[in-house]
């Protein structure tokens, strides 16, 4: 076993870390941002067609829906990145 990953492993890791950082910014923005810090301000707006004040809705509904979307997005993107970098597990499973 080598002590450092081959270059494609390093590139894969870099792409992964960048994607994780971007998604964590969004994670923070929908919950701590829209649901807490900006909630009093967003509460002046109503979600169109409903009785929800926007900050309240983000805290009790929107942030959770966004979390689900973020994880599925990450899983999909990582499947693609792993295919592109030739690091996906499928061919290996088939070989067994």
């Amino acid at each position: 076993m080598t002590s450092h990953p081959p270059p494609r492993g390093q590139r894969y890791w870099l792409r992964n870390v960048r994607l994780v950082a971007l998604l964590l910014v969004l994670w923070f923005a929908v919950s701590y941002g829209a649901g807490i810090l900006l909630a009093p301000w967003l509460n002046n707006v109503r979600l169109p067609g409903t009785g929800f004040r926007l900050g309240f809705w983000m805290a009790q509904q929107g942030s959770m829906l966004a979390f689900v979307a973020l994880i599925f997005f990450y899983a999909r993107r990582m499947d693609r990145i792993e295919r592109e970098e030739g690091l996906d597990e499928r061919d290996e499973e088939d070989a067994q």
Partner: peptide
């Protein structure tokens, strides 16, 4: 609204877990 801490707190952790 204060109850939102449980809603966001007990779901948002899964994003950290997955990522």
């Amino acid at each position: 609204y204060d109850g939102s801490v449980y809603l966001m707190g007990w779901t948002g952790g899964y994003v950290l877990l997955a990522l």
